[in-house]
Design a protein around this nucleic acid. Structure first.
Lengths: 354, 354
DNA sequence: CTGTTAGCGCTTTCAT
DNA sequence: ATGAAAGCGCTAACAG
């Protein structure tokens, strides 16, 4: 007898097959101890009536618990990785009644050894699944290899490592976001123009990052569209404000014709701050990522466009991919590029608070 | 005794309060038949230990069923409202194990009587909640008044009616999306330019729509920024291709200096098709909404930017607002503007398939 | 007013 | 290999 909703239950299947609910459950979960014959009979009935289990009842009754572990760079408040963690926390919240618990491990993204230690520790707990913000390729492959050997599914977040076999990848298409940056900055220019192009560097950087890919995409637009422009490049550094200040002074004051600027790092506010302080209002600027400080300069009209990538959503979906795979037995597709959001003063307010 | 997850259960509360689980349940749901004294005691314990119920267990045990009804315009495949219905269906899918069923009613958006009949019928079933794509104000208020009298919560989708008291509104900020359209189209123009501006009209249109608000936002940008431009306006019609063709010919051929165009309707492809067929490639064009046909012209470079509003997400969230309110007893905030997505050739692929 | 009991759909243990 | 029975956390009907 199906219930009010007309939904079919295990009991219904059991009756039709002339077996007990326990047996149906055994075949549903391949738990063995069922004769080939009844197995076939039950399976055919399940297929026939298009049975979908009540996952909530299942979770309630099940004694199985799951532990996921996430390994991401340590961060300070207001940084990019904070949003990633928020997404993880949101996923964790939704899964507690499915007996899932999530632990987050942090590594120093400027220290290779820290990456290794953290990952080793996380793996040593034998989690049921992992979410991983990868480091450089050879290092990362070393550990994804271990995970694969142990049969632990893992999901890459933010950036991807070729030759690994993650359950899924959630991140952005950095090439394209660089390409789009160029288009927004340069498409309407009719004559040759001067552009300031900033990258960003930290000694010992070990976490993979998007900067060089974005720059590559940027240049491919210029090549493809045969844009006539002069690029003035500079590299900024973490935690060296004086050097950065000098670098920017050199760049902008020696090249007064610069009318556009782009910085391929989430720390775009560094350049924005400089432009603001030096009243270089005529320079159109593009930055990356939805950091609070970047938003500030978007709102006060220093940054024209911010290209953003919804990190919370990526992380949230990464967690969901693990649970879909492990708990809900759903097929999960392997690559998920986040939308490239184009943010301006006008639409920014609707994007805050995911 | 709390379970493996350390989560507190009703039984724990009951023990601490020296009552039975049944009594705790009664106070949790204000079902009466509890003395003031024990009520207070139980409540204080609940607050103290920060109890969160297991909603899945609750839904499983509960005999209560819910029926939601949605009232939206009838549509053809590929039209805007199809995406709204997809969002509704997705919400319905997620809620079946909470014993929620959703019925969709359609009205003819060009026929006032049809709106009334459809709404009356939907209301006559005494649903537990309603999702409503409103019509013109006086007409809509007539029915929202009825709903309020009967205590049936309702959610507005797509557009909003002042003086009504919906549980929530999900839609876009049309003023701002018009403003943003102007910025994208005109911000980089240095000299006076000629712009084609299209609105859209259907005789008997009774569903509320965003076109005039978008136009207002567009004009407010021009005023605010003191943009020097000549507007050439035209109004297109549903199902009158010949007239549209003539209108566009007149506009574009009589004003060869036009270098930009905007159409404040989801049927932006009409203008795009014309531009494409007449090789007017030099004209930059902005359209609205993520229809398949619009995407086609975005991809082949006829439409420069598409401003989109995630209708599936809006509808989905509308349904969730009803269930949050009625089933999960969560507070739902009343106004939810959808993000204004700026779509280009570069980022469109990541937005398809919500 | 309050406690007890049965049962939601499913899992899991224990007999058989 | 299979069925019966208990129980997950919660609700609801029934006694008292």
């Amino acid at each position: 007898m199906n219930n009010i909703q007309g939904k079919i239950k295990i009991k219904d299947i059991a009756e039709k097959a002339g077996v007990s609910a326990g047996t149906v459950d055994r075949v549903l979960h391949n738990r063995g101890n069922v004769s080939e014959e009844t197995k076939k009979r039950v399976k055919s009935i399940i297929a026939e009536i298009n049975y979908t289990p009540n996952l909530y009842a299942s979770a309630l009754a099940s004694k199985k618990t799951f532990v996921f572990r996430a390994v991401i760079p340590a961060y300070s408040s207001g940084e990019y990785w904070e949003m990633i963690e928020q997404g993880i926390r949101k996923g964790a919240q939704e899964l507690i009644d499915f007996k899932v618990s999530i632990h987050v491990h942090y590594y120093d993204q400027y220290n290779q050894e820290s990456f290794c230690r953290t990952l080793e520790e996380a793996i040593s707990y034998k989690p049921d699944g992992m979410l991983l913000a990868p480091s450089v390729k050879p290092l990362t492959l070393q550990y994804t290899g271990q995970l694969e050997k142990k049969g632990i599914p893992y999901v890459f977040i933010d950036s991807r490592v070729e030759e690994a076999h993650p359950l899924a990848y959630f991140g952005q298409d950095s090439l394209r976001s660089g390409y789009l940056g160029a288009k927004l900055l340069l498409s309407q220019k009719k004559e040759c123009c001067d552009v300031a192009v900033f990258s960003f560097f930290h000694p010992g950087q070990v976490a993979a990052n998007q900067i060089s890919l974005r720059m590559e995409g940027f240049n491919s637009y210029i090549r493809e569209k045969e844009i006539d422009c002069r690029q003035h490049r500079a590299t900024l550094a973490v935690n060296d404000e004086k050097k950065n200040e000098l670098e920017m002074k050199r760049l902008f004051f020696e090249n007064p014709k610069i009318e556009a600027a782009i910085i391929f790092s989430s720390r775009s506010y560094i350049v924005a701050e400089f432009l603001k302080n030096n009243n270089l209002n005529h320079i159109a600027m593009i930055g990356y990522d939805l950091l609070e400080k970047n938003v500030h300069y978007l709102k006060n009209n220093t940054i024209s466009y911010l290209l953003a990538q919804r990190p919370e959503e990526q992380a949230y979906k990464g967690i969901k991919a693990l649970s879909d795979h492990l708990i809900f037995k759903k097929q999960v597709s392997s690559v998920h590029y986040a939308p490239i959001d184009i943010l301006t003063q006008e639409n920014i307010d609707f994007c805050l608070g995911f």
